[in-house]
Amino acid sequence: MTRRFSPERIGWLLAVVVAILLPLFVGEYLTSILLLIAIWSIVAISLNLIYGYTGQLSLGHSAFLGIGAYALGLIALKLHLGFWPSFFAATAISGLFGFLIGIPALKLRGPYFVLVTLGFAAIVGVIILAWVDFTGGANGLAGMPRPNPIPLPWGGQVRFDSLLNMYYFVLFFLVLIAILCDRLVHSLIGRTFIAISHDENLAESLGINTMAKKLLSFTVSAMFAGVAGALYASYNVVISPDVAHFARGMDVLACLIVGGAGTAAGPIIGTFVLTAIPEGLQIVPYLKTLINGIILLLFIIFLPAGITGGFKALALRWGDSRKSSGGRDAAP
């Protein structure tokens, strides 16, 4: 029920315009950073769906990322299916894994669910590393396909061998998934996700099949993470087991918390901030983890709702205190 030109929509539109124009003015290097920000933002959005909106903290999203990346690579390289079939298959396979892991894992609540997802991530990481014949082991896979050129109606075609065009390709999926996620959580189904995140027992006592809804959210979330993995594989051309390293799951969670879990812009803002700060400071990689850890700690202590979440809570409280000024206790 948002108005056509609500401030939020204008903000989103501006952000997209900036994201489209920015690489035209910065160099190749910064464009490649922006591209990675876009990919990790997709993972953060996918984690946001299951954690931010549905309240189930998954530390296993590195696994879905890895499954998406390796599925694209293996299908393209071993079955020679070309980009699009491999891409869709990778998305579906990630979703399938999410569904299958979700069935036992989502029966558990709170920390037990978190531990199962973490264990799953560790197992997938080990399998990718150890199953050398299938996955290439520590050497990884090389020769991932870029998207097929898209022919233009007026002749010529858009090719994806340039960094800039690949960036736009990834940006398109970021915008698409952000819109899909936003529509889903603002639908009547999405309200049940949010209800579960607030109080699962109350949701169930209102007749919501919480297990089915959590499974739906987790499956869609795994699919989105798989899309990010497939995009990463295609962009990078080479993938190694690093893509599925479980620390990635933590990084994504950090981005989500800093940006604001359970908000539409949070995952993107958080990923941007946590990538841009160490990048801007030009610090060595291992210090980057340290800096990000400190930023995360500061947020958890001082602004647990994150950047967007903090703004939202302020606006809500302010709006509500204005409305309530006339007759707080005036129940008829």
Partner: peptide, 28 residues
Amino acid sequence: TVFGWEKVLDNVIIGQSLHVRTGVWGAI
């Protein structure tokens, strides 16, 4: 028990969830 961070109207909307027919496709 109510969903304290939701608006009053939204609480009652959530209460009708079990009647909802819209699926994922319809939602997106």
